[in-house]
Write a protein that binds this DNA or RNA. Structure first.
Lengths: 123, 123, 123, 123
DNA sequence: TTTT
DNA sequence: TTTT
């Protein structure tokens, strides 16, 4: 609820099925990754697709929805908060991981659409 | 110009003066870091400030403005694009760096305000 | 390019084909209307769809895209600037019209999807 | 909580003190108006400030904050939902009113800043 | 690691 | 005036 301070909005396709984790206090966590594909033109005028990968983290009800409906290849839109945590590897080097903690999730690939696509493929 | 696909908005204070870099083709680059301070309540009801640090990258005209006006401690708002690049360190370990490439920059700390503050301090 | 000051983002379906207008200086204008459908729960727990209608205004290249690809019923996402203009009617009463001047336009209904849907319907 | 469907972000100064209204069920409402000032250049290169006025509506806790802290001339940032309602005037003509129902409110003019400004003015 |  |  502090979207004026820190807010990320992304639209793209999932690179993997969500990985689920259940905590002691029954809190559910889902992790997945999202590709954003931005088309840009090079100096010589060619179209290039610039894929960026983003780590998504979903808690509670968003994690439930992720578990039920999110699959590799599906298109979604998310709004969330940008966070960075650090950890130290076995060699003592510090690493940073930036993640989007999702507040809001919207399916772009609709259920009916999936069904229609399957029907079309079956012809 | 693909803000519907990938867009970040942040408001906070700079943790450092911008570091400038000039490239062969005369393109200017500025790097700095921004803290967002989100106030949240713990389970026991205490107020905690959750500071997140973000890497900002500014090109061209935005870099010029950064060079002239951005200083450690100043409050700004930015809109940009979320990007992640990776590099391999000397030990062969892969690292990821997530950065916000700034499209738009707004000074929250205004010049008049700075002057008034200085005047007030001088009393 | 002042999205930090004034920015609207909408996702929904068009209620009409765009109306085109060509000005002397060859500038093209498209007008259309967009419905956003927000699902909310009433006090008694029922699901209600709250449709809001928004006036969209598109200039230049966005107007070209509107003319070619936007049709009643299509789903799109837009980012734009909120503007209000006033006019006085024949009875001398002032009226206000609020419009979103679109900066960025994204088709949610994809071409392939339309074709697949048509193929599925044809079975 | 449907910011992916319908979201407005504005930053500017208030044109009036909020008008308060208390409903039977103890729900509080505040209304005020916000100006966004966008600087643009004319064809001949002159700087022009384009002021846009927006109607803000605040409910519940946001209304409480508005009542306590919002005053004419103060600078704020808001995130909200774009809504349009219509009414028919005495002459039977339909009018539309577009309003931003505020979800989130941030003071840009800070308390310390006000105090410093007052101190500076008092010199 | 997605998709067209 | 859209759509599910």
């Amino acid at each position: 609820m502090k979207a004026l301070i820190n807010s990320v909005r992304l639209m793209g396709r999932l690179g993997m099925d969500p990985e689920m984790k259940l905590f002691d206090n029954n809190r559910k966590l889902a992790r997945t990754s999202l590709a954003t594909n931005e088309v840009r033109r090079t100096g010589s005028g060619e179209k290039v697709t610039d894929a960026q990968w983003h780590n998504l983290v979903l808690w509670g009800n968003n994690a439930e929805i992720a578990e039920k409906y999110l699959k590799k290849g599906k298109e979604i839109a998310v709004e969330g908060r940008l966070t960075t945590r650090s950890f130290t590897d076995r060699e003592g080097r510090k690493h940073f991981v930036t993640e989007i903690v999702v507040n809001e999730l919207l399916m772009i690939t609709k259920k009916e659409q999936e069904e229609k696509e399957l029907a079309a493929e079956a012809v």
